[in-house]
């Protein structure tokens, strides 16, 4: 995929996400998802967390959009970097 194609795809995904968030806050925000619902119905509490995460998904359109942007960038960066490094190692191994 070309650089332009990637940029376009990223813009489309984020645009759809921005629109999708409106629907999310109109219809779903605050309701549990499937697993959370089953846990709630049965009174299962989550235990103490071993790890406390630095961020959350935000509570309104703006903060959730920022969380989505950060997650999008982090996921993109992590997979991209990982594969680049791996490819480098892979081609070095193949040459050796």
């Amino acid at each position: 995929m070309s650089r332009r194609g990637c940029l376009k795809a990223a813009m489309v995904v984020l645009l759809l996400f921005a629109i999708g968030l409106v629907g999310y806050f109109a219809l779903s925000a605050g309701s549990p998802d499937g697993l959370e619902r089953v846990m709630e119905d049965n009174g299962v509490e989550e235990g103490d967390q071993l790890w406390s995460a630095p961020l959350d998904y935000g509570g309104d359109w703006g903060t959730a959009f920022v969380a989505g942007l950060i997650g999008f960038a982090l996921t993109f960066g992590a997979v991209y970097l990982y594969l680049k490094v791996y490819l480098k190692g892979g081609s070095a191994r193949r040459k050796a």
Partner: peptide
């Protein structure tokens, strides 16, 4: 590589969007 990374990032944001499935539950 860039395509895989975009797809991963896209799935990340898609997972944030819950939709109602009735009975006060979302998926």
């Amino acid at each position: 590589v860039p395509f895989m990374a975009i797809l991963a990032a896209g799935i990340f944001v898609a997972q944030m969007l819950n939709f109602p499935v009735g009975g006060g539950t979302t998926g």
